[in-house]
Every structure is written in C-alpha cells, then in structure tokens.
Simulated assay, not measured.
Amino acid sequence: MNKNKILLVDDELNLRETISELLNYENYDVKTACNGQEALDLLEYWSPDLIICDIMMPVMDGNTFHEIIKEIHSLNSIPFIFLTAKKENNLMRKCLLDGADDFIYKPFKIKELTSIIESKIERFEKIKNNHTNLYLGKKKYFLHEINTPLNGILGSIKLLMKDEGSLDRKEVLAFYESIKMSGERLNRTMQNIILYQNLKNNSIKFNDNSSSEILNTFLNTKEKIFKIYEGQEKRISFDIDKAIIKFSQEHLEFIFFELIDNALKFSSADKKIIVSGTKYDDKYYEININDSGIGLSEEELNKIGASQQFNREEREQQGLGLGLFLSKNIIRESKGVFSIISKENEGTAIKIFLPLYKTTNLD
C-alpha cells in the first residue's frame, strides 16, 4: 500500500527531525525543507498529499510560500496547515481567510497533529479521485487537442468509405497518411497526460542503473521528428559525442523529441536548430539545444508549468504545453540539471547536464 506523502517546512532542525520521525512512525512518507524556497524546489519533482509549514522562516517565509502555492494550479488543492509558535491576535483567522486548511500553535500534541492530518488527507483523496490534477485552462485547449486529431481520423475514414470507388491510389494513400498523422498527434497528447499524472503521483521509478548511448538515441529521435517535419532535415545541425549516460533511453528520447520539436515549431523554416553534446567532466555530459525562434520573455520563463502556453492564438500552438515542463522535471528527477535562457524575437538556449554512467571512450 502506498504511503501518504507529507511535506514538512520548518527552519528549526530539532523540531523538523522530531515531527518527521513521529510521522514516519505513523506510516507517512515525509520530506522536509528548512524554508519556502527549498520547499518549492522539492515541489518541482515531488507532489505531496499535505503540506505542514511554519510561518516565520528565513529566505522565504510561510506566508509567501503559501501565496505562491495558491497560484500554481497543480498544487493549490493540496491541504496546507500552518504551524507556528507566534502568538498574535487574529493570526489564525487571517491565515484561514487566506486559504490555509488549518492552523496549529506550537507546542502541540502529536495526536492533535495526526488527527488533523488524517482528516485533511481523506478530503484530498476524494478530490484526487474525482478530478484530474492537470489544469487545462479556461479556453478548453484540452478538448481542442483531443477533438482536432480525432476529427481528422474520423473525417478521413468517412470520406474513404463514402468515395471508395472514385478515389485513385494516390488519393487513398493521402487519406491514410492523414489518419496516421492525426493518430500520432492524439497518441502523443494522451501519453503526455499519462506521464504528467504519473510524475505528480510519484509513481514513476527512476532506476539508478538505467543507461543509454546518447548519440544513437538522438539519431533515432531525429528520424521520428522528421517523419513529422518531412523534407526539413537540413534545419537541424548537430555535433554530439558518443557517451553512455545514467538515464533511461525512453526518457532521453522523450526529452530530445519535445525540446527539438518546440525549437522547430517556434522557429522560421530558414533558421537552423543547433544541437551539441560533449562530456563536461568525469561526472556529467552537457547537451545544448539552441534556436533563433520567437523566444520567451522573462515573465513567461518564470511561468513555465504544466499546460502553460503563451499567446497561443498568435503563435498557433499545438499541444497542451506539457513538453517543456515534463522534460525539466524528468531531468531533475534523474539527478540532472536543466536551464533555459530565452529572449523575445531572438531565440532560446537550453542547457542540460546529465550524469555519466561510465567514462569509457566509445570511439
């Protein structure tokens, strides 16, 4: 049976360790952070069933952390309990009005804490069982991404059946190709949604013994990409050294596909995408993906998240905006490093460091 997950945020080390130990004994899976910023870093790749947070902390206090959580659609339904020794008139009332689920003064009895935890997690489980955690936006982009390829499939089949006797082989093959492309788009959408849910539910196991050869993985992915971008092979320039990295081939192909697809999608046909890869040191392999496309503003970069898209109508985007978000989180979950620098109308530079599996030269 899976344990319920709790994030405990408190700058007092002794209290943090004591509460964590007690909750572990009560069969909870507990992760800790010493301030709001450290907690946000944890939430990039780990989703708890409940958050317990102190108010007064250095770097980022509990109130600021809570305000940020409320703005993140994939996290704002998680029960949030304030824990504080601060005695102030109307403090509890203010926190509850601001959206906290409960409030506990220090010192407290562990029975009081576990009783509140049980009731809040029970409520959260009901929410999870009835609603997806994926925020799909007010403009129904999710329905668009399902209906568009589905209509392409059904419409093509209907025309094939209706005009079967009057179509020549070339026209029939064109319909088949249309059905195939629509099916692949629909499949990609659904697979990304499943991957997102698995990541948020912490049900993906990242095996430390996974490995893949990076050049062959890139070449395989490039072939898949140009089945979509037919005749545009010259748009990618690459220089990738062979190496075995501590990363599953499935996840590496996903990341290459999503990031290169984004670069091609948001760059004009006369602009090249440059992909390079080389050993950074004895521990890490460095990958760079650079484009000269439309880029993102600093504000947009700070808002990257699941289903987050920017100026969709102007940029004619397809997809749910999950690719970049999922790639970033898979890399971090696999003990890699992801960074992105982008400027509007100038382009985007993505830098990734992935752990090397072994340093043997394969040339």
Rank of each mutant, 00 (worst) to 15 (best):
D239F: 04
D270V: 04
I289R: 08
G36C: 06
I294R: 07
L159A: 10
N262F: 01
E67G: 00
N2Q: 11
A349M: 07
K242A: 04
K227N: 13
N288S: 08
E344K: 15
E300H: 03
N90K: 14
N24G: 15
D163M: 06
L324T: 13
K120S: 05
G183I: 05
R93C: 05
K303N: 12
L195M: 11
M92S: 12
T114Q: 04
I179F: 09
L15C: 01
D41G: 02
G155Q: 00
V172H: 04
E300F: 02
I255M: 04
F142N: 07
Y105K: 11
A100E: 07
S307A: 15
L40F: 06
F218D: 03
E164Q: 09
K3M: 13
D168E: 12
H66I: 00
G231L: 11
K283H: 12
N262W: 03
F256D: 00
L356E: 08
P58K: 06
A39D: 07
N130A: 06
D61G: 07
F142H: 13
G62W: 04
N90Y: 15
L356W: 07
F310L: 04
T360V: 12
L22H: 07
G323A: 07
I121C: 09
K111I: 15
F142E: 08
L362P: 04
I19R: 10
L96M: 14
E125T: 10
E71Q: 14
Q232C: 13
F257K: 03
L199H: 09
A85K: 02
E286Y: 08
K3H: 10
H66T: 00
I179K: 07
I331S: 09
N147F: 12
F254E: 07
R332D: 05
I240Q: 05
N302W: 00
G321L: 01
L83V: 02
T221A: 04
L160A: 07
L264G: 08
